[in-house]
């Protein structure tokens, strides 16, 4: 009956697990988000367009999405390097550093924001060395990127780590003993295995960074049109009891993020299918 819906498999539990997941998903995520959509819908179309296309809102999208993209990219590159270092090399303090990777999640965002500002302000540990070169981090867009990179750091590291651990080293070693160049091994064996994990990490780091409020607010400066992120605009709307306006901005961010997430996920599914087909 669901033959067209899914490809048959001998594994059990499809109905149970899918049913439970979708039920839970609806209860925790979709119904509350429906409240957001209905609130947005209380605005007329014209109002909605006006709120979403205000120059100030547009400037904030550029900042929020741009900074988030940059932060997620930084995280992908450095996150991979860190994950590689932590799984493949042995050095003193490795285990402790490994355990500290989750800290950006455990620390309340406000604490990260305050601590980063203290470090990168012109009188801070790092800020004082950057200031003579005219590099200002705190209260500029660079500060926003720094904060967003920090809060997204665990995503890439933590999704690449298990994948790297599962890469078949035998295969790798065999390839190398057979004379494959180091870079070829990396490109042909390691990269395909960890690429989905990197993509997942990137997606999540990006998604999280777009909506982040707590840490950015301390380091951003919050000047309208310059260093004002979209979540701050939402808070500003709320301060004026404009729930519909706030919901509209939130909804717009959600749709944009959703489209980006969906395309990355589709790309991954497509990539995997191609891989499977090629493998057979």
């Amino acid at each position: 009956m669901n033959g067209t819906f899914r490809t048959p498999s001998i594994l059990p539990g499809f109905g149970l697990t899918l049913g439970f997941s979708t039920f839970f998903l609806s209860a925790i995520v979709l119904i509350p988000l429906a409240a957001l959509v209905t609130k947005t819908a209380t605005m007329g179309w014209d109002d909605l367009v006006r709120v979403l296309t205000e120059p100030r809102a547009v400037a904030s999208y550029k900042l929020s999405f741009g900074a988030a993209l940059l932060a997620a990219t930084l995280n992908s590159v450095f996150g991979f390097i860190i994950a590689w270092t932590l799984t493949r090399y042995e050095f003193p303090g490795r285990k402790l550093i490994d355990a500290l990777i989750d800290m950006p999640f455990a620390l309340p965002t406000a604490v990260s924001g305050i601590a980063l500002t203290a470090v990168f302000a012109e009188n801070g540990w790092i800020g004082q060395y950057l200031a003579p070169y005219g590099i200002k981090v705190a209260y500029t867009w660079i500060g926003i990127v720094v904060a967003l990179t920090l809060i997204g750091l665990p995503f890439v590291v933590r999704s690449v780590q298990p994948a790297l651990m599962e890469v078949q080293r035998d295969l790798e070693d065999a390839a190398e003993t057979l004379g494959a160049a180091r870079f070829t091994v990396f490109r042909r064996i390691i990269l395909p295995t960890v690429a989905p994990a990197i993509a997942t990490g990137f997606t999540m780091a990006f998604a999280r960074a777009v909506g982040e409020y707590g840490s950015v607010i301390f380091i951003a400066g919050n000047l309208p049109m310059k260093t004002e992120i979209t979540p701050l605009l939402i808070v500003i709307k709320l301060e004026q009891f404009d729930y519909a306006g706030a919901a509209a901005l939130g909804f717009a961010m959600l749709v944009l993020s959703f489209v980006m997430l969906l395309s990355i996920n589709l790309l991954q599914t497509w990539g995997r299918r191609r891989q499977v087909v090629a493998g057979r």
Partner: peptide, 8 residues
């Protein structure tokens, strides 16, 4: 114009 930061 002289305010470098607008804290929340």
């Amino acid at each position: 114009k002289r305010a470098p930061v607008l804290d929340s």
